[in-house]
Write a protein that binds this DNA or RNA. Structure first.
Length: 745
DNA sequence: GATAATCGTATTTTT
DNA sequence: TACGATTATC
């Protein structure tokens, strides 16, 4: 290896990292535990390859999110300049398909459907087939379709494989769904991957071109790749065999989306001669944090043994803190942050991590009440808001007139007298002509079929469409095009007065995004912008460490790190989420359960110095207070390096009478008034101090998991969990002699 | 055909 | 709770 490159590319790296960075040609798997510097290895390896003579254009780096791609681009840019292609699988495939999809007989102006678009199609198909929406839930159907696509199984295969009525119906819906998308010249997220594989299979000469171009392929987060993605990676490295995959099986948290840990586990079989390098030294966390996380995830059975070590000090203990309710938990987090800031007079990077999005509300309220700046990293961002989707639909339709979903979305938005009935007729007329709706009405197919009034309305719409097409075509910028659509449709005027301001704000953000897009992609056109608006998420725009606390889900926390982490809501049906508990099998734990545990592990390993884990005994779920209580995962933490603080013992509580029963009085009606601000949830500091009541029932507050309980039949036991069942409570109590029993009280 | 009121169901996680 | 979807009314 060239000696002179060592200093700036290799300095500060440990032995295994250097080995990975300087690995020569051939397949390489880097199994990198949390905090072991895997991103560094990738960026340095790219720099090394370039130093060693590879052209930047010959390198393709695949990341899991656009955000990660951007970050990597920045880091590679600093070390080795520009020109390396860094993208997600989805955006790379979109790029390939825009250029090559004509080989598959499709049109390069295709729309990309997000999940809600796809769901609309599935709903319509289900309705058409007159399927009972109870038994055949569109969302489940779509998940199934997606699973088939992940496995590159076309509808015919799906039908063959069906072993139940449900499977058969799903296959039928799948087939129709595919036809509908093709007619609309649209691809869904999965199609981006699947069509790319098809393209490569059917047209080896196209594949050969990409194989020739990309001599080096590096894939990050390999543990979360699915089958199609694996096929794409395999195809791309087919000529030079220079694939570097980096990942950590313990951080597989997307199996629900088809991620396969086996892609890592069986890497050597798939890529013969592959070298495997493990990165086992953790540079991020204190020993206590690392130890707690490792100990916990070691409870998974389906796992390859991996030992992480650190040379940092033990640090302060991991603190586990219980609370009576979710509001108290949030309050405690806010106060703890303030205390810390006052004591140290500094603002460390802080993350509040939770399992589900809806949990953010309590924290937003508490933080703003205490004047703590925060930002919610919300993935249901700008582009999924109705207002933005409406305007985007016009743009989609201009780019791709066949886009039936877009058309159906806006043909009567703002209302222009084209109701369900007219739309229905128009759809029928279009079907008769064999054309998608917009082309059909542009052709005047509706003229004879509609009553005068409806015809006029449709004619007006056609006129508007033509006008918009022209405007967009003539617009000097992407922003200009978007602006004209907003103006010419008179969209804002149609919004109810009290929501108009908010809509305006959202659209302003959208416009700002268009402008930003153009700055970054001077060559970019409307099609490119529309693509970005579907594939990008708000996480991509989020900037860490800006002197505010970050609120985010465990999933979106992947790959990030904070000085201080609050892992909150670590409760019975929240962290192992209730949905994961459902399919628990009798013999042991389900796959889903293990994934929840990995999620817990991912959360803990985000922390550098301080880790708090907290739970509440009660929280609002679906508008009702429910008992949750300690997560079973907490029992799996090591005793060393973890300190416990049970929730506040509020009020006197008569636990036992002579008969070992406990009395129960009326539970105070608790409520929390939380008016959700309709504004953008991103990066803003709310000033409101909502009323915060909570479950202040002293009895309940004292009935904490972990509490010793005397039972007249079974003796003393430890309360494991509490669930409310109507008027009664279901108590799970661990008795030394009998094990865990469930008692209805 | 548009609007308001009511009803029912969903909340895991995301490219 | 809170949203979307269906229904009732104008």
């Amino acid at each position: 290896m060239p000696e002179n490159t060592d200093n700036y590319i290799l300095s500060g790296l440990n032995e295994s990292q250097i080995e990975a960075v300087t690995f020569g040609d051939g397949p390489l798997l880097v199994v990198a535990g949390a905090g072991s510097g895997k991103t560094r290895v990738i960026t340095h390896r790219i720099a090394y390859l370039i130093e060693r003579g590879a052209a930047p254009e010959e390198i393709l780096g695949i990341t899991f999110t656009n955000k990660a791609a951007k970050e990597m681009e920045r880091r590679v840019g600093e070390m080795a300049g520009e020109g390396v292609m860094l993208r997600t699988f989805h955006s790379f495939c979109a790029l390939v398909l825009r250029r090559q999809i004509h080989h598959l007989g499709l049109d390069s102006s295709f729309s990309i459907y997000d999940r809600s678009d796809s769901l609309k199609v599935v709903r319509r198909v289900c309705k058409q087939f007159e399927l009972d929406p109870e038994q055949y839930k569109p969302a489940d159907m779509l998940n199934r379709i997606s699973a088939h696509k992940d496995g590159v199984e076309p509808p015919e295969i799906a039908a063959e494989k069906a072993v139940s009525e449900w499977d058969e119906q799903a296959a039928r819906v799948y087939a129709k769904y595919e036809l509908t998308l093709t007619d609309s010249n649209a691809l869904d997220f999965d199609d981006l991957l699947v069509k790319t594989v098809l393209l490569f299979n059917k047209h080896p000469e196209v594949l050969a071109r990409y194989q020739g171009q990309y001599k080096y392929l590096l894939v990050d987060e390999y543990q979360d790749t699915n089958y199609v993605q694996h096929l794409i990676a395999k195809a791309l490295q087919g000529r030079h065999h220079n694939i570097t995959a980096v990942g950590d099986p313990d951080q597989t948290i997307y199996t629900w989306r088809g991620a396969r840990m086996e892609n890592i586990m069986r890497f050597q079989e798939e890529f013969p001669g592959a070298r495997v390098i493990k990165l086992e030294r953790n540079y991020r966390s204190t020993a206590n944090i690392l130890n707690a996380a490792s100990y916990s995830v070691a409870h998974n059975i389906n796992r390859h043994e991996k030992v992480l070590y650190t040379q940092s000090g033990s640090g302060s203990p991991v603190e586990v803190v219980g609370h009576s309710g979710a509001a108290q938990e949030a309050e405690w987090v806010a106060k703890t942050i303030n205390k810390h800031v006052q004591r140290t007079e500094s603002f460390p990077s802080i993350g509040i991590l939770y399992r589900t999005k809806y949990q953010s509300g309590e924290f937003e309220a508490a933080l703003s009440k205490h004047g703590v700046p925060y930002q919610v990293v919300d993935t249901t961002g700008l582009f999924e808001r109705k207002v933005v989707k409406d305007i985007a639909a016009y743009l989609h339709l201009v780019v791709n007139p066949k886009d039936n979903v877009a058309l159906q979305r806006i043909i009567n938005v703002p209302t222009r007298g084209i109701g369900a009935k007219t739309l229905d007729r128009v759809t029928k007329v279009a079907e008769a002509t064999g054309m998608p709706i917009m082309p059909a009405i542009l052709d005047g197919a509706h003229q004879q079929e509609l009553p005068p009034r409806a015809r006029k309305a449709v004619d007006n719409f056609v006129a508007l469409y033509n006008h918009l097409s022209e405007e967009c075509f003539n617009a000097s910028s992407v922003r200009g095009a978007v602006e004209r659509v907003i103006n010419e449709t008179d969209y804002l005027a149609s919004i109810k007065a009290d929501e108009r301001e908010e809509s305006r704000e959202l659209l302003d953000y959208f416009l700002g995004f268009a402008e930003q897009y153009q700055e970054q992609e001077p060559e970019g056109d409307l099609t490119g912008f529309m693509e970005l608006s579907v594939l990008a998420s708000d996480v991509d725009a989020w900037e860490p460490d800006t002197g505010s606390v970050s609120l985010l889900t465990l999933h979106s926390a992947k790959g990030l790190e904070f000085d201080m982490v609050f892992l909150v809501g670590v409760e019975d049906r929240i962290l192992p989420h209730s949905r994961a508990l459902e399919d628990r099998d009798v013999m042991g734990e389900s796959e889903a359960m293990e994934e929840e545990r990995r999620l817990f592990h991912v959360g803990m390993t985000r922390a550098r110095k301080t880790l708090y884990i907290s739970y509440a005994n009660e929280r609002m779920i679906r508008g009702q207070y429910e008992y949750t209580g300690e997560s079973p995962f907490l029992q799996e933490l090591p005793s060393d390096g973890v300190s416990w603080e049970k929730g506040p013992r509020a009020g006197g509580f008569s636990l036992t009478s002579a008969k070992g029963r406990w009395s129960r009085k009326s539970s105070g009606v608790s409520r929390s008034k939380k008016k959700k601000s309709p504004k953008l949830k991103k990066a803003k500091i709310k000033k409101r101090a909502p009323e915060k009541h909570a479950a202040n029932n002293p009895e309940d507050a004292d009935l904490q998991p972990g509490k010793k309980i005397q039972h007249d039949k079974y003796g003393e036991g430890t309360l494991v969990s509490i669930n409310r069942a109507g008027e009664k409570k279901l108590l799970k109590i661990d008795f030394p002699e009998y094990g865990v029993l469930t008692i209805l009280e």
